[in-house]
């Protein structure tokens, strides 16, 4: 089939009397976007809400154990963790807001989205891996302080070695799980963006 014939077919198809009424279109405007960036924003909101809920539960638990010897230590830890989470959530939200420019040239928008998504994945990966080490160390320290004075059936150095060994296993498992999880969540989309940009760039150099 000749290309002019294809053009003619294409032109005729655009004259189609399509059955979309104003009411249907207006209804669509009330829906929220489902694109990848919109999904990540929604997930961030859920994360923030979950942390608020968690904080509520922890504050309630602490307030019921006011005689605990490590109350002040717990409160300081909570405040530090809360501040760190706020910094993380703020940085992520800022990144998400700069992540897409739908009315920009396709190539620049894809580049923008790819670069921001890669930054976001690195952030997730680092926060996840550093976070688990910190949580583990803090939990260990709290247990150590709470158990001070108690007699344990194993020597002190074995106790420390056991603690470090379990920690190492946890870190390795978390590292591989994060990689697998992030690949499933964003890996395919990142690869798709890379392929499209590669095709655009490939034609630039030929």
């Amino acid at each position: 089939m000749e290309l002019e014939k294809l053009k003619e077919l294409w032109d005729n198809s655009s004259n189609a009397s399509l059955s979309m009424n104003a009411e249907g279109l207006s209804q669509i405007l009330n829906n929220s976007a489902r694109g990848p960036i919109a999904s990540i924003k929604r997930n961030l909101t859920i994360e923030v809400l979950l942390v608020i809920l968690l904080y509520g539960i922890i504050i309630w638990l602490i307030s019921n154990h006011v005689d605990s010897t490590i109350l002040y230590f717990d409160i300081i830890l909570l405040v530090v963790a809360g501040i760190l989470f706020l910094v993380y959530a703020f940085y992520k939200y800022k990144l998400l807001n700069k992540m897409e420019c739908m009315a920009c040239e396709v190539k620049s928008n894809l580049n923008l989205q790819l670069n921001s998504l890669e930054k976001l994945v690195k952030l997730y990966f680092r926060v996840g891996n550093i976070g688990i080490i910190l949580v583990y160390l803090v939990a260990g320290t709290i247990s150590y302080i709470e158990a001070s004075g108690e007699t344990v059936p194993i020597p002190h150095y074995v106790e420390i070695l056991l603690f470090l060994a379990i920690g190492a296993v946890l870190v390795v498992i978390n590292y591989h799980f994060s990689r697998w999880y992030l690949f499933n969540l964003y890996g395919k989309h990142i690869q798709k963006l890379k392929n499209i940009l590669y095709e655009m760039d490939e034609s630039e150099v030929r």
């Binding site: 990848p36 897409e100 739908m102 396709v106």
Partner: peptide, 16 residues
């Protein structure tokens, strides 16, 4: 621009 940006970056799955 908007339509192609949407089509090319969309994760295809059904929803409400």
């Amino acid at each position: 621009r908007v339509a192609l940006n949407t089509a090319l970056t969309e994760k295809r799955k059904s929803s409400k």
